[in-house]
């Protein structure tokens, strides 16, 4: 079901505008996201990334313009859009009082799926949370909460997933784990739109990157297209010093507090984290 829309873009945004009272947050945003790709919306705090995601996930109505997700207009057919998407917001939307397993069962039941318990157990395994599954989420670390949050978003295999700043506030290991998850998702044909203020995150994950600045898209292209905007690289010889992050990851080992996904993080040289 994830690759049915091969011709039409999975997300189409045209001329979206949105103001809050006098503050114009979005001033005509246009972009398309190809089905099965990872699209990064890059921008600093207050650029309008979250507002854009909230419009696409039917939480907010735009003032002007049109947006369609999985072929459905967000304002005309919000119900169909909600069937096709899942949203992982900026703050982990998990229920602290319930256990990890109960959170997953809850979402599976609300999506009217059969066998909610099996779905929960399967996801706990996929996200290395089997042992923690019976514990209340209040006892989880930030990385575990985020993984559970993303696991909850995958229930029902929605073809389009929105991730709003998925790694903000996570430690380096947790961030690597989340990145692996996102890569795997796109590998299975899910369309991923993620927002981030971290350049390295967009660089590492995204097939296309759009830079949202002061309410409009000022650039939109692949990483190599964006790199061509600057003068050709000149070759310099610089002594490679390990960054503190390299040292940290080497010392504590990348498995960290929890077991990672079966294949493990692939690249040991995670680029230093630069803020936009």
């Amino acid at each position: 079901m994830t690759t049915t829309q091969t011709l039409a873009p999975a997300i189409r945004v045209q001329g979206i505008e949105k103001s809050f009272k006098d503050l114009q947050v979005l001033r005509g945003v246009d972009f398309d996201v190809q089905a099965g790709s990872i699209f990064a919306l890059l921008g600093s705090n207050g650029a309008g990334k979250t507002t854009m995601v909230r419009i696409l996930s039917t939480l907010l109505k735009s003032d002007a313009g049109t947006a369609a997700v999985h072929g459905f207009d967000v304002s005309a057919k919000p119900g169909d859009v909600r069937e096709s998407i899942s949203l992982t917001g900026q703050f982990a939307a998990v229920d602290d009082v319930l256990t990890g397993r109960e959170n997953l069962v809850l979402v599976a039941k609300l999506r009217h799926l059969k066998n909610p318990r099996e779905i929960a157990d399967d996801l706990l395994k996929r996200f290395s949370l089997t042992e923690a599954g019976g514990r209340r989420v209040a006892t989880y670390s930030g990385g575990m909460r985020r993984r559970l949050d993303i696991a909850m978003s995958l229930i029902g295999n929605p073809p389009v997933i929105f991730l709003d700043e998925p790694t903000t506030g996570l430690d380096p290991q947790a961030r690597t784990e989340v990145w692996q998850t996102i890569k795997q998702l796109a590998g299975q044909g899910t369309t991923v739109l993620l927002t981030t203020q971290y350049l390295d995150e967009a660089e590492y994950l995204a097939d296309r990157i759009a830079i949202l600045h002061k309410g409009t898209i000022i650039q939109n292209g692949t990483l190599s297209e964006l790199k061509q905007l600057l003068p050709t690289a000149k070759v310099e010889y610089v002594e490679k010093q390990p960054s503190l992050e390299d040292v940290f990851l080497a010392l504590v080992g990348e498995t960290g507090e929890t077991d990672t996904s079966p294949d493990g993080p692939s690249d040991s040289a995670v680029p230093a984290r630069k803020e936009f």
Partner: peptide, 13 residues
């Protein structure tokens, strides 16, 4: 506050 409300709102319930 916790964001679970928004999760519910973005789901087909």
């Amino acid at each position: 506050q916790g964001g679970i409300f928004e999760r519910f709102q973005s789901m087909p319930i």
